[in-house]
């Protein structure tokens, strides 16, 4: 074996090795598992099945499918409140976040979003409410989870659609999480509530006939897989697998399973949410 072929062989081996390393970060490969954190109070994206207490949801299914396609990785799940999701990405407790988190410019300082689901805040009321159109909610008390981006969205919408039309502004009432918000709606503390359009079909199947959606999803946006800016290799490989899932129908199947076929995207986008 000549010196040249040996060095060429080694170079080829090195090239293949580095190409493989570009696919998946070494520590994930070594661990053979993905570390993912979710806020499991957000049905149908991620939540604990009340019957079995198992962690289930659209994000869970997507993540499991991704892990399979990334070379049969296991997933080590951990749960935190919504406000802790971004910190757990920053502190590297999680490899990436897939937890019903909206792609927003203010969140893109240290991370990128691979958008995978169309969404947007939506008004809903108790079925017996008199509100018919979204503008009927001007001047009324509207609640939403305070740790999300929705309070700001409501304020914006109220300015554009209520105050410019000479109507009183919407009164925002904070809630701790989506269940708390629905409780306050049931008790009459608020007249309407706002949740991501991805959660409403599920809420309606849980309590049929109790709620009614009012108007369209306002402020269209996307939910994204949040990945650290310096983890470009991981981001590329996740985007690649997601594209494949959309192409061969696995993605649509999962979305349909959770009643969210209408929220599908044609392909994964990078930081595509408009603001």
């Amino acid at each position: 074996m000549t010196r040249l072929s040996l060095s060429l062989g080694l170079a080829a081996l090195a090239a293949v090795a580095s190409a493989q390393a570009a696919e998946l970060p070494a520590e994930i490969k070594q661990a053979g598992a993905l570390k993912l954190t979710v806020n499991s109070t957000y049905a149908p994206m991620e939540y604990r099945d009340p019957a079995t207490n198992e962690l289930v949801g659209l994000d869970i299914d997507l993540a499991n499918e991704l892990a399979k396609r990334l070379g049969g990785l296991k997933i080590v799940w951990s749960e935190t409140p919504f406000a802790e999701l971004i910190p757990s990405l920053q502190t590297r407790r999680a490899d990436f976040i897939i937890s019903g988190i909206s792609d927003r410019a203010s969140r893109r300082e240290t991370a990128d979003f691979v958008d995978y689901l169309a969404t947007g805040p939506q008004f809903f009321v108790m079925a017996e409410s008199e509100a018919k159109a979204a503008t009927d909610l001007c001047g009324k008390k509207v609640g939403t989870t305070r740790s999300t981006s929705f309070p700001v969205e409501i304020e914006k919408w109220s300015k554009q659609n209520c105050e410019t039309a000479g109507k009183p502004a919407i009164q925002y009432v904070p809630g701790e999480n989506s269940i708390d918000v629905r409780n306050q709606l049931k008790q009459g503390r608020i007249d309407a509530a706002v949740q991501g359009s991805e959660t409403l079909p599920y809420a309606q199947t849980q309590e049929p006939g109790k709620y009614r959606i009012v108007g369209e999803a306002f402020a269209k946006g996307y939910q994204g897989i949040m990945i650290r800016k310096d983890d470009s290799a991981l981001r590329e490989v996740v985007t690649e697998k997601l594209t494949a899932m959309i192409a061969d129908g696995a993605y649509k199947a999962i979305l349909d399973k959770w009643g969210l076929g209408a929220n599908a995207v044609a392909q994964p986008m990078l930081n595509a949410a408009p603001q």
Binding site: P87, R107, S147
Partner: peptide, 12 residues
């Protein structure tokens, strides 16, 4: 304090 860090992510 929570409301502030919900908006600007400066938890600590």
């Amino acid at each position: 304090a929570e409301n502030i860090y919900y908006a600007n992510s400066r938890v600590i």
